[in-house]
Design a protein around this nucleic acid. Structure first.
Lengths: 126, 126
DNA sequence: CATATAAATCGAAGTTTGTCAATATAGTTT
DNA sequence: AAACTATATTGACAAACTTCGATTTATATG
């Protein structure tokens, strides 16, 4: 799950620039690689205007919104709507429930909480 | 600024499915198109593991981190680091300040606040 | 059972993103 | 000025994303 190691794996005390030291070395990485990947995946799932509006709609009509309702709000084809809902679903941000012929969607608070938690921690010292 | 109109522009009372009504029609869209686009752009800027870690680093070392510090934390080329910082900068999430030979970066709280605000509103009824 | 409807999946085209090597720019030091 | 150092920019290429039309699946209805 750690995967492709573009991110440094451990917290290190970094040496800085080559010549004159530009700033004191300090321990830099404070978050695990998996956390960063997990969070990035959540942000990516939200990073489309369509999906932002979908989350907005779903959060204001919990459990009551079927796909055709959402479909009618966008100038997009049915497969595209389905795709965007799938992105949100695979990220764990929403869940669906088949009721008869229709699929009803609702937001999963747990996933949102994860994003909010990280942002709250960030902003603390910003 | 409203642009490509994939998103519905106004709040409407939507008609639903074709045959049997699956659910009561209701006003659906509660957010302006520009808001959705603006927010999506912020989410997109964060939606990479590298940039998540960059924000983490910057938030924990406000104003003290030069690019070479960040560079040393990733197994990525210098242009790629510069690119990711550029994405964050263009989104308004961070700002840079040239001091001598080095560029120091810090988080812009206002942009984070915008994201946090929307998420807080969302989760309220979720 | 045949037909219709809601939603998901598949396949393809166009666009965007991530990455690097090479080059450019700007400031520093000798 | 010449050489060096830290960042940014450019250009290229592969991978991922968005969108659609066509098809498939599942459920409902005549």
């Amino acid at each position: 799950m750690a995967s492709n190691s573009v991110l440094a794996e451990t917290i290190e005390t970094g040496e800085c620039c080559a010549t004159t030291v530009c700033c004191a070395p300090f321990p830099v990485l404070g978050m695990a690689v998996e956390s960063a990947e997990n969070l990035a995946q959540l942000f990516k799932a939200i990073s489309s205007p369509v999906r932002v509006q979908m989350l907005d709609i779903l959060s204001r009509h919990a459990g009551e919104v079927c796909v055709c309702d959402i479909e009618s709000q966008f100038a997009l084809s049915q497969p595209t709507i389905s795709h965007h809902l799938g992105v949100l679903r695979k990220a764990g941000l929403v869940q669906s429930e088949q009721r008869g012929l229709w699929a009803f969607y609702y937001v999963r608070p747990a996933a949102l909480e994860q994003v909010r938690g990280w942002l709250a921690g960030l902003a603390a010292e910003g």
